[in-house]
């Protein structure tokens, strides 16, 4: 596999009143060219921190990157200066879609101006050519009536339409890596489905690599070939989607999967309950794990290989996946 993005031993802490708190501790994570990796986890698990770290957009005064590498196409992004990132990576090779489509567009400019600006910068088009290219891009993201949409201000569009515009802007940069940070959050379910379908199509036709961030296993399963489950800044399970969904090994993954709403008869399990008080040592999931035993407190479990590419971090697991 030709690796596009590779993260090694990344440790990021946040400075707080109570001292430094660990936000992210990732041993190894990689994304191949043209592949899709889904990151799942609850809010605060560190998904967005990871995305911002890749772009170098973490708030400088409040976060400390302790160690590690973020290799993009072989180059370590953490060693790059702000200028280099601005000129060669952000918006050129890496694009990001943010959580809330309602506030990602600048309210005082029309869609045409904002999209046109990006296309002009990346392709140097002007006048009628620019307009045609803008319309084409909007048609690519299946925005109905693209020509009149160019003349509209963001507040005149619905959430789904806005997210399509944002995807169009992200795509018109011609980036190789697209980071989608919960792109369907705050959208209606029907519109969610539309946006997911669109992203899936675009990923396949354009051969993009996508890092898809979500808090819903169901969404990630639709789009991604690989899934990583994050809990409190650590990858607790990682592998091909099918293996992770059908043969999940970590109790947290199980909780996430059982939280997907299904038929009426099936009971929703309440996955967020704390069973014990939080501890600093041992397994990060100890406090909420239904299977926890005394020895869980002894060490922070490493990822244990289960099958080809499928790994989970739980000390109850033996190699190959038996308990």
């Amino acid at each position: 596999m030709n690796t596009l993005l590779e993260i090694k031993n990344l440790k990021i802490n946040f400075k707080t009143f109570e001292g430094e708190k660990q936000a992210l501790d990732i041993e190894h994570l990689q994304l191949g060219r043209g592949e899709t990796l889904g990151l799942v986890g609850e809010s605060g698990a560190g998904k967005t921190v990871l995305a911002l770290a890749v772009l170098g957009l973490l708030p400088a005064g409040q976060s400390v990157i302790h160690s590690g590498e973020i290799r993009f196409d072989g180059e370590d992004l953490l060693q790059k200066s702000r200028r280099e990132l601005e000129e060669n990576y952000r918006g050129r090779r890496i694009a990001m879609i943010f959580q809330d489509p309602m506030s990602t567009l600048n309210p005082v400019f029309t869609v045409g101006q904002q999209l046109g600006n990006v296309i002009q910068r990346h392709r140097g088009l002007k006048g009628a050519d620019l307009k045609n290219a803008s319309i084409q891009t909007l048609e690519l993201v299946r925005l109905s009536d693209a020509e009149s949409a160019l003349q509209k201000y963001p507040h005149e569009l619905s959430g789904g339409q806005r997210q399509r515009v944002i995807i169009a802007i992200a795509l018109s940069c011609g980036a190789e890596l697209l980071i989608a940070d919960e792109p369907t959050r705050n959208l209606d379910v029907t519109i969610q489905a539309g946006i997911l379908k669109l992203m899936d199509e675009l990923q396949k036709t354009l051969g993009l690599s996508v890092l898809f961030i979500a808090n819903n296993m169901g969404l990630v399963n639709v789009i991604c070939k690989h899934i990583g489950v994050l809990y409190r800044g650590k990858v607790v399970e990682l592998g091909p989607s099918r293996a992770v969904i059908e043969n999940h090994k970590h109790p947290y993954t199980e909780a996430l999967i059982s939280a997907i709403p299904r038929e009426k008869s099936e009971k929703l399990k309440f996955a967020a309950a704390s069973l014990r008080s939080e501890t600093k040592r041992g397994c990060p999931y100890y406090a909420r794990c239904p299977l926890a035993v005394e020895s869980c407190l002894e060490q922070n479990p490493n990822l244990i290989p289960i099958s080809d590419g499928h790994r989970a971090a739980c000390i109850l697991l033996r190699e190959g996946g038996g308990r």
Partner: peptide, 14 residues
């Protein structure tokens, strides 16, 4: 602090 400024930064706007 608004999202669109962050978004603009994420596509490399100086």
């Amino acid at each position: 602090e608004r999202q669109f400024v962050r978004a603009a930064l994420s596509i490399g706007t100086p």
